[in-house]
Design a binder for these strands. Structure first.
Lengths: 221, 221, 221, 221
DNA sequence: AATGAATGAGTATTCATTCAT
DNA sequence: GATGAATGAATACTCATTCAT
């Protein structure tokens, strides 16, 4: 076995161990909250000794940043928008929301739960999170916004505010679910389409605006 | 001085003391977060001794519930909807959002900040909060929803999901602000109208207003 | 009971508690060494709870500095030299050493033991100790040295070095005792006079230098 | 290559490794103190892995004993006294002190610093140190003391106490230097002669030198 | 009721030591 | 022998809570 092999093997083992610990941390932090969870809890959940955690993470807080990093590595926001160049707005919005929701749900709601609750409480994490996750998403989204903002027509809402509103809706629905809303829990799959519909058309009923007689066919199907 | 007078005086003093302590708690919790803040911090901020706090609140956690109670007492959700019986949907949505935002901003974002962050982490608080604040709002809103949901027209979105989406948008925008979004901070006053516009019409550009006769084909398919 | 009385009572109680804790710390640190001794050890020895110690001292290290402070307050080096203005050198040296030894032994060898061992290991303490204890002693001693340094006769040894030599002798004998020398332990009372004799006359036997025929009468008595 | 050769080679390598580790330990312990220094620090300084140290030393404490052993092996106290049979006392004292100081300074003050500070705190080490270093020195010195103690003349001081005083002076001056005395640091070279002068003649001024015929009155005033 | 000193359970972190490779 | 990852006991310090005054 060459030294090179050794090194890469070690690197692999180390990264696997890191993952194992982060998985445990996610689980434990989500259950008890970051502060109430102890390093011992995480160690037990990961099946290692307390001290071992410190071979891989500087401190308890570093575990949170580790979660953030891993989340960051997973995300591929760019792609979404790139694919969308040729799509029509409605399709894009639906696709985008569906994808984001699938992502969130799969990557584990838990990670968001943990990060979100600490983000509200820990300034350093808040800044890192905003810089690494929120701001980039907004930046890319703003670029894309120009695809569906017909330049000749006046926007009803300032695009930047609109962006916050849309992002906020996604985030807020997630928070409502984390707060224990059971309807969202049971019907989570329907949420992205519902949001998409609201975003695209507002609360108007399918046919006929509440005051206008519209021949519009928003959704023929 | 009658005993009755004594009692009511005592009650008054006690309630004033409680308020004084809760004010201090709000300030301190908002600054340092619930866990990092100590009872001593709150006591100092309130200008009382540590032990005194325990004459008015069972435990540190009880302070949070105290904040919740006070918030609850302040809120007057019912009224809004009652007033709205005769309004047109658009006006109602605008009025409602404006009022809620004013409320939140005035009552102090701080209280929400504190409650929200703990709600995500503390099951007991989460349940109380949902039961006392979220659920009632939803219940009333659902009742009202029937005013603008023309029974004969098919809704595009399930009303309950729609409700979550709308509530989520408000909540989410708030969270984004708490997360440090500076645009929301500087343009907070414009947010309720922007949300109202989005809720009413979606992201469509200005032409095809809800009061205009639109031949609009939002999505030719 | 007036507020003033209250305050001074509290101050008295607090200072008594401090003393009680420092006594315990002295005992425990001397027995086990500063590092090996735990706060719990000190607390047990003082008959208080662990946390109580932190009501009076910032940290474990602050306990050491507390020992130093108390030592400092006790010492009255100035006086010795003042009294000596009229004494003859020999008498002074004897008196001085006897007094110092009595002091050290009474104030507790333990305190020196503890401070000395940490001084050798802790730079901050070392500097404080040197500044507060050693340097002042040297300064005063140098002033006094002019009483017995007959100006017209050439000194054999540089006075500053001599000072170090004498101080070193005292210190060194103390260290030897702390290192467990049993002879010094059993005959500790004779040590100051022995040192005085050595300091005054060197190792020469009572009469007649080993190689010189001296009619000298170093010490007629 | 015979097995014997193998063995001696191995022994050589092993002893070299031990030396390498002890050198590292000396350096690290002197810098950070025994307790604050970690095995990892020593290992890094020695360029080996943590575990390797345990192939050569039982425990962290054993490293100290290792330092002691090496010091012991280096010392050659006997010799000094042997050589001295024919010397005059004054010359011997001067030579002896000079040699000891050179030794200490060269062998590295660091080793003494480390050992001394631990000796004050660690009973086991204290006893070993006393038995291996201090006691033998005293024993030999006592033997020699009979060369210059003219049996017929009465000693002014008990020889054993005198011995402690002289040894203490050397030790004490060393400790003062370790405590940061800057004068001793800059004028370290002059110290042995100063001590010798004090030991031989006491603090008397130059007139009445040890070789001059003095009608000396130590202290006219 | 108010006080604040005393309490002691609770915890992040360190580090000597072991042992599989 | 050499390695260094894993171990887990050990410990300074914090802070919610109590209670004598």
């Amino acid at each position: 076995m060459t030294r090179e092999t050794d090194d890469s093997l070690q690197a692999y083992v180390a990264s696997a161990r890191k993952s194992q610990i982060l998985d445990a941390a996610t689980k434990v932090f989500a259950e008890k909250g970051f502060h109430r969870a102890t390093i011992r809890d995480v160690a037990r959940a990961a099946g290692v000794a307390d001290g071992t955690i410190y071979n891989y993470f500087e401190s308890k807080t570093a575990l949170l940043l580790g979660l953030l990093d891993r989340l960051n590595a997973t995300e591929q926001r760019e792609v979404d928008f790139a694919q969308s160049a040729e799509m029509d707005v409605a399709d894009f919005v639906r696709m985008y929301l569906n994808q984001r929701f699938k992502e969130v749900t799969a990557t584990s709601l838990d990670v968001f739960h943990v990060l979100l609750s600490e983000v509200l409480v820990n300034q350093e994490l808040r800044e890192t999170y905003y810089r690494q996750i929120v701001a980039p998403t907004f930046a890319v989204a703003e670029q894309y916004a120009q695809h569906w903002a017909s330049p000749e027509t006046e926007q009803r809402i300032d695009p930047q505010l609109m962006l916050r509103a849309v992002a906020g809706m996604t985030l807020g629905v997630l928070v409502l679910r984390l707060m224990g809303d059971s309807l969202l829990q049971t019907r989570w799959d329907e949420v992205p389409d519902a949001l998409a519909a609201l975003i695209l058309h507002g609360i108007k009923p399918a046919e006929g605006d509440d005051h206008a007689t519209s021949s519009g066919t928003d959704q023929p199907a």
